[in-house]
Simulated scan of single mutants.
Amino acid sequence: MTTLRLRPEDPADTGAVRRVLAAAFARPDVTTPPEVGLVDELRGSHAWLPELAMVAEYGGEVVGYALLSRVRVSSDEVSAPALALGPVAVAPHRRRIGLGAAVVQAVLDAATELGERLVVVLGDPAYYRRFGFSRADRMGLTSPWSGLGEPWQALVLPPSANAEAPPPRGEVVFPPPWSKV
Results as ranks from 00 to 15, higher is better:
residue 2 T to Y: 14
residue 3 T to R: 15
residue 4 L to Y: 06
residue 4 L to T: 15
residue 6 L to F: 08
residue 8 P to L: 08
residue 8 P to K: 08
residue 10 D to M: 13
residue 11 P to C: 11
residue 14 T to P: 02
residue 16 A to L: 05
residue 20 V to T: 12
residue 22 A to P: 01
residue 23 A to W: 00
residue 25 F to T: 03
residue 26 A to P: 08
residue 27 R to Y: 01
residue 31 T to L: 11
residue 32 T to G: 03
residue 36 V to I: 10
residue 38 L to Q: 07
residue 38 L to Y: 10
residue 38 L to E: 07
residue 39 V to P: 03
residue 40 D to C: 07
residue 41 E to R: 15
residue 45 S to E: 11
residue 52 L to V: 08
residue 52 L to D: 03
residue 53 A to F: 12
residue 54 M to C: 14
residue 54 M to H: 15
residue 54 M to D: 06
residue 55 V to M: 10
residue 57 E to A: 07
residue 57 E to M: 08
residue 58 Y to K: 09
residue 62 V to R: 01
residue 63 V to S: 02
residue 66 A to I: 02
residue 72 R to C: 01
residue 74 S to K: 14
residue 75 S to Y: 02
residue 76 D to Q: 11
residue 76 D to K: 07
residue 76 D to C: 05
residue 79 S to C: 14
residue 80 A to G: 09
residue 82 A to P: 00
residue 84 A to T: 10
residue 85 L to F: 06
residue 85 L to G: 03
residue 86 G to C: 04
residue 88 V to S: 02
residue 91 A to M: 06
residue 92 P to T: 09
residue 93 H to R: 14
residue 94 R to M: 10
residue 94 R to C: 12
residue 94 R to I: 05
residue 95 R to P: 03
residue 96 R to I: 08
residue 100 G to Q: 02
residue 101 A to G: 14
residue 101 A to Q: 14
residue 101 A to H: 12
residue 102 A to V: 08
residue 103 V to D: 00
residue 106 A to G: 09
residue 110 A to I: 02
residue 111 A to S: 04
residue 112 T to R: 12
residue 114 L to I: 01
residue 115 G to E: 03
residue 116 E to V: 07
residue 118 L to P: 01
residue 122 L to V: 14
residue 123 G to H: 03
residue 124 D to C: 05
residue 125 P to M: 11
residue 127 Y to C: 07
residue 128 Y to V: 12
residue 129 R to E: 13
residue 129 R to L: 09
residue 130 R to V: 11
residue 131 F to T: 11
residue 132 G to E: 09
residue 136 A to I: 03
residue 136 A to H: 00
residue 138 R to L: 15
residue 139 M to Q: 15
residue 140 G to A: 07
residue 141 L to G: 01
residue 142 T to P: 00
residue 142 T to G: 11
residue 143 S to C: 08
residue 145 W to D: 13
residue 146 S to L: 04
residue 146 S to M: 02
residue 149 G to L: 06
residue 151 P to V: 10
residue 152 W to V: 04
residue 152 W to K: 06
residue 154 A to N: 07
residue 155 L to M: 08
residue 158 P to D: 10
residue 162 N to M: 13
residue 165 A to P: 07
residue 165 A to V: 15
residue 166 P to M: 10
residue 168 P to L: 05
residue 169 R to A: 15
residue 169 R to G: 09
residue 171 E to Y: 14
residue 171 E to D: 15
residue 173 V to P: 02
residue 173 V to Y: 03
residue 173 V to K: 05
residue 177 P to A: 13
residue 177 P to Y: 12
residue 181 V to K: 00
